[in-house]
Design a protein around this nucleic acid. Sequence first.
DNA 1: TTTATCATATTTGTCCGACAAATAATACAT
DNA 2: ATGTATTATTTGTCGGACAAATATGATAAA
Lengths: 243, 243
Amino acid sequence: MENLKISSTKTVTLVDLVEDRLIQYFSDHQLGPGSTIPSEIKLAEELGVARSVLREALSRLKMMGMIESRTRRGIAISEPSLFNGIEKIINPLWLTEDTLLDILELRMVIEIGLTDSIFRNITGEDIAELEEIVSVGTAVGNNKYAPISEYQFHTKLYEITGNKAVKEFQTMIHPIMEFVKDRYKDYFEKIAAKIEADGETVSHKMLLEYLKAGDREGYRHGILRHFKIYSDYLASRKLKRAH
Amino acid sequence: MENLKISSTKTVTLVDLVEDRLIQYFSDHQLGPGSTIPSEIKLAEELGVARSVLREALSRLKMMGMIESRTRRGIAISEPSLFNGIEKIINPLWLTEDTLLDILELRMVIEIGLTDSIFRNITGEDIAELEEIVSVGTAVGNNKYAPISEYQFHTKLYEITGNKAVKEFQTMIHPIMEFVKDRYKDYFEKIAAKIEADGETVSHKMLLEYLKAGDREGYRHGILRHFKIYSDYLASRKLKRAH
DNA sequence: TTTATCATATTTGTCCGACAAATAATACAT
DNA sequence: ATGTATTATTTGTCGGACAAATATGATAAA
């Protein structure tokens, strides 16, 4: 019976309409970043809605970084950022298990796919920085990195690409990654032990060697094996679900 | 002089604070998807702000898909989607050239990194579907696909992974990709011609062959070369900027 | 003419109150 | 126990009000 109910849950409100109309308005009037828009009173009049309704719509666009209201000086359009808006509201606790693992996979996908961009952009200074990070990290011992070093190493990889969208993505999902790592700790440790026993562990230090040697294909497969701990888990879950 | 101005542009408003407090409130009270929250009046009282202010904050969360207000029946929390919010407001026209190319690169990165997930999940039916898409597409002739086929082929690749976050990402950036392809058409065509002349073009059909043969590494480098048209352009721009 | 000072008008941020319409809750009648 | 009518809640929308910061224009002074 649960699924019989008509999903009248999504009633379109005036605010929704105004939101769309505003976006269309900006587009029609070719208002790009830097442009200022009419005052709230004029806009509300023009749209034929109450100022409170208009303000709700504007507030949404503001959250997405599409507009920037300089207090008591007018509203200006700014370039929306891809992930800033969601970053605030993403709480791993709200997310279903499937979503969590989807994001884990997406993170792997990006970091593996980033290989060529890294080799396109890496400089000598970058390598020096990575060496510093690695040397500090492994000082903790027995092939486990200090969490800070783990974070710094991968962050540095993202930064090398010089791609802001990629960087934003990383900062957005970082808390989620921490949560996932903790939640599935037991599984991951078991898999890690097996990989270690098989001598297939790929450390940050080894990845750095590939980078220093300019060995792109070596790095590509290195980073792949570096994430084997996660891809193995994802594969095992896929099996379980199909079962 | 332009850069001397103090960026007092980001004054924190009450709505901003309420937004944060609400998220914290949900977290503290362990309210996850499905939970209902107190009425607007009670919340406004509890927070000590006007209902209009509270509504603006709620409206933001609503846009991000974090809450769902059943008209006149109360407000419920729902699982926020990663990219839904931005999808509406991303207009390629607002984006700077750098951002456009960052997103182009991110798209390549993801599709290349998706290789292993595809091989983890692909089925016989998937291959049959891809064959259908390819056969229809190349019927247009001389190694250029009908735009629909181009879209369908890559969409199918995303779908094979069964990763919803990845799929959402694709639908979000699709309009941007169309815009980019059109805007840099001249450059891309020039590069494409050169690649074609060198006999390095990798068609959808060839990618499909790798998939059918279960040749993972073949596919990996195939998809890489398939995007050579874009990566070459990105590399040339990097050079220009460093210059 | 240029500069400094002052008064006025705009504009955003916040608050309050009101009402319609839909739904939920309750009391009542059968 | 069931169906009906009344009442209370709750969201969506409207309108107006004011403070504070800024922009604008007018006036006075050099």
